[in-house]
Design a protein around this nucleic acid. Structure first.
Ligand SMILES: NC(=O)c1ccc[n+]([C@@H]2O[C@H](COP(=O)([O-])OP(=O)(O)OC[C@H]3O[C@@H](n4cnc5c(N)ncnc54)[C@H](O)[C@@H]3O)[C@@H](O)[C@H]2O)c1
Ligand SMILES: NC(=O)c1ccc[n+]([C@@H]2O[C@H](COP(=O)([O-])OP(=O)(O)OC[C@H]3O[C@@H](n4cnc5c(N)ncnc54)[C@H](O)[C@@H]3O)[C@@H](O)[C@H]2O)c1
Lengths: 238, 238
DNA sequence: TAGATATCGATGTAAGTATATCGATAAAAG
DNA sequence: CTTTTATCGATATACTTACATCGATATCTA
């Protein structure tokens, strides 16, 4: 059973990688050279076993009794996610959410940089938000083709999401980060990642409900102070 | 094996519920009375089996050859999620993301209404965003206690997330929707839902990478037009 | 140097999800 | 009224993910 040894991260693993990166990058400032799975687990609220499993497919190896080399680990993760060289992205829809995204400097840490934005509303175009120019949507295709941009961020109202997605794809976009609560219909050679905030809200509601109903039967001699409470995410390979 | 029949939705199911709700509410406008799992599956890109499994724990039943009663289904979902009577929430941090969330009218559809916001920056307080008042953070506790608010939305910079969370909890907050990329340490009787956009970005990166490398070996006689491309989320009960 | 402690990596188990199959039922079509 | 089609619901299977155990190895301490 050694055929094609598993060098592919599962989606749950992939989702945890940004968290690891954050902690690891904080550690770089320290004089530490190595970090243990136990340490990362505690910092992030996972189980140490999960951490080691997550790193298992990466082309690195930890040392017993020591842990993983921090720099090696960071490099391995960034390599796997393709975050070493930052990829340019275009954003469409500079409304509430779109301009929040533009105002966020954090994405560059994750390999993506929004370099141009577009909107249909003349009141919003021909200005800059956080140093990013906002152009009329008509110029999207020209610019996308010229700059060979492959990632598009979709932050328009639901009813315009599909047509804008199609326009993106025609202009060469291969990956769409979709914030509109709509299932986009796209060709096979285009990937979509839907970001639906309502999912998290639904989970929160249910957790709160279940918390209340279960606390009707309180744990006998328990007044422990500071545990945790997380909700993860998983998924099979499409 | 009928002891305590499974009336509990899995987390993946819970995450799909908002999508169902959206489609169902659109259907209400129609004159349709029933909807089949097949229809919902097609509309959302799931498998019909998944849809039926998702509805199985709900206290409703579909009719063979017909489907589910739309109104019954909506009610069952909203009941389960506790979204029938809207719950008030407070938001802290009216920066880029926070004000985007305030500008969004959609959350009420999911049982949560942000009724007050708070910030530490005097330049941002004592104004309204989308008709929601922004107060100084010092007033949080008083207002939370007075209004018996149980849900807090955290949209402050990472370094302030933990202290603000603690302040929320002292004021009676039981559920925190956390947008800061930080693991919050909270007591057992408080639930946290972390919303980490980087997760989705990580998934998108990998999907794009895998798309490119696999397309080196194109599927032989395949030029099918409009398939799909989704990435779901799952998780075990804490 | 010897012993205690921490940690990895491999292997195995359990839990949770997704998917397939099939009989029964309801509506529509002939 | 009979046949066809669509659909649910139950059961079974496969797959993915999380979790547990244990031996081996490295570091630290006495
Ligand atoms: N704001 C939030 O917190 C939030 C939360 C969850 C989901 N969403 C989703 O994100 C999307 C955007 O939300 P928002 O609150 O920013 O809405 P918004 O109305 O504030 O912004 C939408 C922007 O898209 C622009 N636009 C409209 N049609 C366009 C077109 N054809 N081409 C280019 N630009 C166009 C508008 O001019 C506007 O600037 C929506 O689909 C919404 O459902 C938003
Ligand atoms: N903007 C995005 O697109 C985005 C994306 C992902 C994650 N986030 C996360 O969301 C959080 C907010 O991001 P942002 O872009 O809105 O940042 P921001 O700096 O624009 O806004 C932060 C707000 O919090 C306020 N604040 C600071 N300390 C406070 C305190 N002690 N009490 C009350 N208010 C306080 C500030 O005054 C400011 O208004 C951050 O943790 C960020 O990492 C943002």
């Amino acid at each position: 059973m050694t055929i094609g040894s598993k060098r592919i991260l599962s989606y749950p693993s992939i989702r945890r990688m940004p968290s690891y990166l954050r902690v690891l990058k904080d550690l770089v400032a320290t004089d530490q050279k190595d970090v243990s799975a136990t340490f990362l687990a505690k910092a992030l609220g996972f189980e140490p076993i999960v951490v080691r499993k997550d790193f298992d497919p990466l082309p690195i190896t930890g040392k017993s009794g020591v842990g993983y080399d921090i720099h090696e680990l960071i490099k391995a993760i960034e390599d796997h996610l393709g975050w070493n060289n930052i990829t340019d992205a275009f954003l469409v829809g500079t409304g509430n959410l779109g301009s929040a995204l533009l105002g966020y400097r954090g994405f560059e840490q994750y390999g993506v940089k929004i370099v141009l934005a577009f909107d249909v509303d003349p009141a919003k175009t021909h200005q800059t938000i956080n140093d990013i120019h906002v152009l009329p949507i008509d110029e999207f295709s020209t610019m996308a083709v010229r700059m060979k941009v492959q990632i598009g961020v979709l932050a328009v109202p639901a009813e315009y999401a599909q047509p804008i997605a199609e326009q993106m794809i025609k202009a060469g976009i291969r990956a769409i980060w979709n914030f509109a609560p709509v299932k986009l219909v796209v060709p096979e050679n285009v990937v979509v990642q839907n970001e639906d905030l309502a999912e998290g809200l639904a989970v929160l509601s249910v957790k709160l409900d279940r918390l209340k109903t279960q606390s009707v039967h309180p744990i006998p001699g328990d007044t422990s102070p500071v545990p945790e409470n997380e909700t993860p995410d998983t998924h099979p390979v499409p």
